[in-house]
C-alpha cells in the first residue's frame, strides 16, 4: 500500500538554513545538506528546500546547494522559491532536484504549469497555493501571503490540475504558525475534488495533527517546518506513533 508521506521543509537564505534548529548534539543545523541528511536518516520521505533569497547572487548559491543536496541525499526532494520561467525549472532539475514547486508565478502566468508539464512531465510540477479563510471562502494569496488575489482555492487548484500540475501543496495561512492542526476540512474538499496528490501544510504542532490530516483531511502527505527544526517532534517517533494509529507510513 502506498505510504503517507512526511515532508520537512527547509527555508534557505544565502545557502543557509534559516529557521532556528534545536537538536541536541547536532552542530551543523545551519547546513542545509547536513540537516536534510539528518531528516533523511530520521525517516523523512521527501524534503522541500525553499529559497527565500531574492538576489541574483542568492539564486546562484541556491543552485549550487541543489547540486550538493542531490549528491549527498538519497531520497526525493522538491525545490521552490523564485521560479518564474521554464529556464529556472531547467536549471534546478539539471542541478538534480526531483520536483519544483511554483506558487505566485503560476497564479500570474498559469501557462507555466502547462510548459513545465509538457517539457518535464507533470510529476515534477508541484503547484503551491497559499490561501486564507475569509467569511467562509478560501482565497488565494501571492508573494508569500502578502498580496490577495480574490481567487478561490478550490477553483484555482482545479485549474492547476487541469493544466498539468502533478501535486497541490496547500498552505493554510489561517492555520500556519498557530500549531492547532491542519486545515482538514478544506484539505478533504481538495482531496475529494482533485485526482492528484495533496500535500497539507500549515498548522502542525503535535503528532495528533499529522494523524488527523491523513485521517480526516485525506492528505497524501504532510509538510511541516518548525516542529521538526526545533526538535519538538522527532520524525522517527512521529512515524511510530502514526503506524500505531493505523496510518500507513514508511518505517
Amino acid at each position: 500500500m502506498l505510504a503517507k508521506r512526511i515532508i520537512p521543509c527547509l527555508d534557505i537564505k544565502d545557502g543557509k538554513t534559516v529557521k532556528g534548529v534545536n537538536f541536541v548534539n547536532f552542530r551543523d543545523a545551519g547546513d542545509p545538506v547536513e540537516l536534510g541528511a539528518l531528516y533523511s536518516r530520521e525517516g523523512a520521505d521527501e524534503l522541500v528546500y525553499l529559497d527565500i533569497t531574492a538576489s541574483h547572487e542568492g539564486r546562484k548559491t541556491f543552485t549550487e546547494l541543489v547540486k550538493k543536496v542531490a549528491a549527498h541525499i538519497s531520497i526525493p526532494f522538491t525545490v521552490g522559491g523564485g521560479i518564474n520561467e521554464l529556464q529556472d525549472v531547467d536549471r534546478l532539475l539539471s542541478a538534480g532536484a526531483d520536483k519544483v514547486s511554483i506558487n505566485s508565478a503560476a497564479l500570474r502566468n498559469p501557462d507555466l504549469i502547462e510548459q513545465i508539464a509538457k517539457h518535464f512531465g507533470s510529476q515534477v510540477c508541484v503547484v503551491a497555493i497559499d490561501a486564507n479563510q475569509e467569511q467562509g471562502d478560501w482565497l488565494c494569496y501571492l508573494n508569500g501571503g502578502r498580496v490577495p488575489t480574490g481567487r478561490s482555492l478550490f477553483q484555482w487548484a482545479t485549474e492547476a490540475e487541469s493544466r498539468g500540475a502533478g501535486e497541490i501543496l496547500f498552505t493554510s495561512m489561517t492555520h500556519d504558525g498557530v500549531k492547532q492542526g491542519y486545515a482538514n476540512e478544506a484539505l478533504a474538499t481538495l482531496a475529494d475534488t482533485l485526482h492528484i496528490p495533496v500535500i497539507a501544510s500549515g498548522g502542525a504542532g503535535e503528532p495528533v495533527h499529522f494523524r488527523d490530516t491523513f485521517a480526516l483531511g485525506k492528505a497524501d502527505a504532510a509538510l511541516a517546518a518548525s516542529v521538526f527544526h526545533f526538535g519538538e517532534i522527532r520524525i522517527s517517533e512521529l512515524k511510530q506513533y502514526l503506524r500505531q494509529e493505523g496510518i500507513n507510513v514508511r518505517l
Binding site: L2, A3, D45, H195, P197, D220
Partner: peptide, 10 residues
C-alpha cells in the same frame, strides 16, 4: 483515491 501517477513509497 487511486491517483495516477503512482507516486511515493510502496
Amino acid at each position: 483515491e487511486d491517483k495516477v501517477p503512482h507516486m511515493g513509497w510502496n
